[in-house]
Every structure is written in C-alpha cells, then in structure tokens.
C-alpha cells in the first residue's frame, strides 16, 4: 500500500514537472515555419546558391567597407553585460620560449555575453512565453549551459545582397530630421518611428527594389553615439530610432533574411505601445525566423552609397558555428 502511494506521488511529480516544461500551446502563439516542422534554420534557408551568385554581382570594385564596431571595454552595454579579455603571454618571459626556434605564443581568454557590440540575434534569442520560432516549446530544449534547439549551428550562410537604407537622408529630404544634439553627425532622435513610407523612400532614393534573400541595413545615425563611447553610452542606451510593427510585418512579407541597424535593438524605443516589449523582435525572429543584427556600423556604407549613388553590396558576415548559442558578436564587411 505504501509502495503504491509512493509510486502515485512519483507519478504526480513527474506529471507536474512535464507540465512545467511545456506551459503553452505553441501552435496558438507562434506560426509554423514555411520550411517545415523540423526547421531550425529560418530565413537563411533563403540564401540559396542562386541568391549568393546574384549577390556576387555586387562586387564590382573589390572595395571592402567595414560594417562592425570595435568590440572593446567601454562600449555601450546594459547592466552587468561586459566584454573582457585576458591575455596569456607566459612564453614571452625570459627562458620560456619553445625549442631551438625559440617559438613563443600568445592567446586570449574572452569573457563576454554574446549579445554585445555588433551582433546577430539568433532564433533562440526571442520568444513568446516559452514558444520560439517554428512553434518550438523551448522550455524542453534548454540546459544550464545552452539551448539544444535553434542554436547558431543550424544557420546557413549570410552570403547575400545587402541593401542600405539611409533613413537620415530620407528624413533630410523630407525636411523632418530632428537630430539629437549629442550626435556629431545628423541622426534620427530616439523614439522616431521609421515607417514603411520612409523605407520605400529610402529604396527609391537609390532605385533599389528588395528581393527575396536580401539583408536590409538601416542607417539612422544613432550609431554615432556608440562611436563616442563611453561618453554617450547612457544616451545611446536610453532609447533609439527604429522600425515599428508595420515595417516589421512589411519586411517579413519581402522575404528578407535579416534586418540590421546602427542601434542596439533595430526597433524604435520607446516602442509604439508602452505595454509591448520589443514587439519587432517577436515579429521578425519568433514569427518569421528573420534575424536582427544590432549595432551595425552603417555610416561608412551610407557615405559610400551617397558617393556612388549605389546602396547595394555583397554582405559578408562571419557567424561562428557556436553550438547552442542564442546569438553572437559578428564581423561584417560590405563588399562592392
């Protein structure tokens, strides 16, 4: 009798544990992936050989334009986020070199959160309750160290066409630019909602039509505050110009792979609805598997586009195949 009670109690514990892991019906909260029920790759499925080959046509001069910021102590971060490197250089000590050839070496220990500096938001970064991209109930796929579904290792290439949209130019042309006085170059101020009309005007400015598999990069000028680190860190983090819900849905309908900006969240902060949290992240990442790339250095490409009247480029971004990571800092070059 006592054994039966114990077994019953154990069953209750097991049942309640399972319930705790899967709290939501994800089919009601998140749409399915267009690439099937087992898909963990999302929008990089769009980067086919044909897409990459077409993007390669953007390389006309071989000019490489840096599009990532240096990752250093002191760049704008939130709270306890940090980047810290520790150098191992023991073999440089007298008598510590190796062999007759006196080999010495150095290496680093890099302590950092993954979502710092210029970085990619992976599909495991943002969900709705415990439901993530492709209706995956992530509560069942996390351990102490990492996620066991939707990690960066599932992503395909980002070797595609980049399209720069210069929102600063659009606002200047429309006579509605209200720059923040702390920006040393023109910038959209925090809280500015970049609309679909703005993006379309930006595309028209350089006669570009979005095509499936593109990566859209928006120049707001706000990244100028990042460049002034640490002086303007508090202001940089206090808000930002960016896209809202309408634009997120429109970009999703354009079947792009990623959207990036020279801001820390790509989306407008304060948001359009004060009761919603990072809703653009939900729309793009959770609902559509479209990546967000934050703190992209856009000013150099904006200058290049203005100089050459061409806003497209080959998007060259390195993403480590880091198993179980929700995102990572990246290096980006725009090649022309």
């Amino acid at each position: 009798m006592r054994l039966k009670s114990l077994l019953a109690a154990a069953l209750i514990v097991v049942a309640s544990s399972s319930a705790a892991l899967a709290q939501s019906d994800c089919t009601k909260l998140v749409p399915p992936s267009p690439w099937g029920p087992n898909d963990q790759t999302g929008a990089t499925n769009r980067v086919t050989a044909g897409v990459t080959k077409a993007a390669a046509a953007e390389i006309q001069e071989g000019k490489v334009v840096p599009m990532s910021y240096p990752l250093a102590d002191g760049v704008p971060l939130f709270g306890t986020r940090f980047t810290k490197t520790i150098l191992t250089a023991t073999s440089l000590a007298p008598g510590a070199s190796f062999g007759e050839n006196q080999l010495t070496y150095m290496e680093d220990t890099w302590l950092s959160q993954s979502h710092v500096g210029t970085h990619l938001d992976g599909l495991g970064h943002i969900g709705r309750k415990d439901c993530y991209f492709n209706q995956i109930a992530m509560g069942k796929y996390i351990n102490q160290n990492s996620i066991t579904k939707l990690g960066l290792e599932h992503l395909k290439s980002f070797a595609t066409r980049g399209v720069l949209i210069d929102a600063v130019k659009v606002y200047q042309a429309a006579g509605k630019l209200k720059s923040n006085s702390a920006c040393t170059k023109p910038c959209l101020d925090k809280g500015t909602v970049i609309t679909r009309a703005d993006l379309e005007a930006g595309l028209k400015l350089y006669n570009v039509t979005l095509r499936e598999g593109d990566i859209v990069i928006i120049h707001t000028g706000w990244g100028n505050l990042f460049e002034q680190y640490p002086k303007q860190n508090a202001l940089f983090n206090s808000g930002e110009p960016g896209i809202g819900k309408d634009v997120a849905n429109w970009l999703a309908s354009q079947k792009i792979v990623a959207v990036g900006a020279d801001t820390w969240a790509v989306e407008v902060i304060p948001g359009e609805d004060p009761k919603e949290a990072f809703i653009v992240h939900n729309i793009l990442i959770t609902d559509h598997g479209i990546h967000i790339i934050e703190n992209v250095r856009t000013d150099l490409m904006a200058d290049e586009a203005a100089r050459t009247n061409r806003a497209t480029f080959f998007f060259n971004m390195t993403v480590p195949r880091a198993v179980g990571l929700t995102g990572n800092f990246v290096g980006i070059d725009g090649i022309r």
Binding site: F78, A265, K275, F278
Partner: peptide, 11 residues
C-alpha cells in the same frame, strides 16, 4: 510589474 511596464534594458 514587467507586464505592465516592460523594461527595455534586457539583461
């Protein structure tokens, strides 16, 4: 409180 006033300093 975070439902009513969602924070924007994710960490």
């Amino acid at each position: 409180v975070f439902l009513e006033y969602p924070p924007s300093d994710m960490n």
